[in-house]
């Protein structure tokens, strides 16, 4: 794994270029993604996250300035055909309503594999696998009308539609927003399994940093169309001031650590989870907190 699979350098993108509605969405993004990695992409609203990930499967292409290589191909070269790339790099959009078009859940998820020209049995297997992966019971949901699904179920059906292509890289754009805590945990478990068991490269775009704990080995922070910070979860969360300046929140446990540090009680590491905070704090309380 010496070569990054995706490499962006000074990537820029302007929507509606040359018109009064022009919006400079990306001003200079540097990003490297290695195969088999799980990374988190965070940033406030309007930071350019969606624009960036739409570059990563070739929907948008670098124009004048900035460079982007994916799998050794220079995406700025207009001769490069992005369509084969999109089968290997799956991108699930924010709103399931933008892609669901069949009446029944099973038919909709089967759309991608059918486009690949796979035999019937294989399509069925992939739909079953994708549905189980996202936690939609095959027997119970395959014949359900899409309109009868709840918001969270719709979201999962849309992700299953992307998964059914069996991409080696999965990008989720704000996949957890609007889900209830249970649905969110389930989706994050799915991503962890895909990453650990199937070796899928995962790129998770989110505004909730808690989502990344236990999943992402690396976090990239985007603000105002630029990469402003990059590092391990702990390194990024250690920069609470910088994150706040860009309109981002900090996980509560990291805030606890910060508050303690402000009172002169420095912890040995930034706690990310309740368990870590407990491990850091309990010994200092000087009491044994065994099971009551």
């Amino acid at each position: 794994m010496s070569e990054p699979f995706i490499r962006a350098k000074g990537l820029q993108y302007t929507y509606m270029a040359g018109t009064p509605l022009a919006v400079e969405a990306l001003k200079g993004v540097d990003l490297e993604v290695w195969p088999g990695e799980a990374i988190g992409l965070i940033g406030p609203a309007g930071a350019g996250k969606s624009t960036l990930v739409q570059h990563l499967n070739g929907l948008l292409r670098p124009r004048a300035r900035g460079q982007l290589w994916i799998d050794g191909q220079d995406m700025g070269d207009p001769r490069v055909d992005a369509r084969p790339l999109r089968r290997r790099i799956g991108l699930a959009f924010q709103r399931p309503e933008d892609q669901l078009f069949k009446t029944l859940v099973g038919d909709d998820i089967a759309f991608g594999p059918r486009q690949l020209g796979l035999p019937r049995e294989e399509v069925r297997e992939r739909v079953r696998w994708a549905m189980e992966m996202v936690g939609l019971d095959f027997g119970a949901f395959v014949d359900r009308p899409v309109v009868s699904l709840s918001g969270g179920e719709r979201r999962r059906a849309a992700i299953a539609g992307t998964l059914a292509l069996r991409p080696s890289t999965l990008i989720l754009d704000e996949a957890t927003s609007g889900l209830d805590p249970g649905g969110r945990r389930q989706l994050l478990d799915l991503l962890r399994r895909l990453h650990q068991e199937e070796g899928t490269t995962v790129i998770l775009v989110t505004t909730h940093m808690e989502d990344l704990v236990g999943l992402a080995g690396r976090v990239v922070v985007l603000a105002g169309g630029r990469t402003v910070l990059e590092g391990s979860l702990r390194e990024v969360y250690g920069q609470a001031d910088l994150l706040r300046r860009h309109g981002l929140g900090v996980p509560q446990m990291a805030e606890v650590g910060e508050a303690l540090a402000a009172r002169g009680c420095r912890l040995s590491r930034v706690p990310l989870t309740v368990q870590e905070a407990e491990e850091e704090i309990a010994p200092r309380l000087g009491v044994s907190c065994g099971v009551v």
């Binding site: 669901l100 078009f101 069949k102 009446t103 099973g106 038919d107 089967a110 069925r124 014949d143 309109v147």
Partner: peptide, 19 residues
């Protein structure tokens, strides 16, 4: 047919997905 049935959630012909 696709729009109205998807909107109303009525499956065409059959009530099972074509899998």
């Amino acid at each position: 047919v696709a729009v109205v049935l998807a909107w109303r959630g009525v499956a065409a012909r059959r009530r099972t997905a074509d899998l």
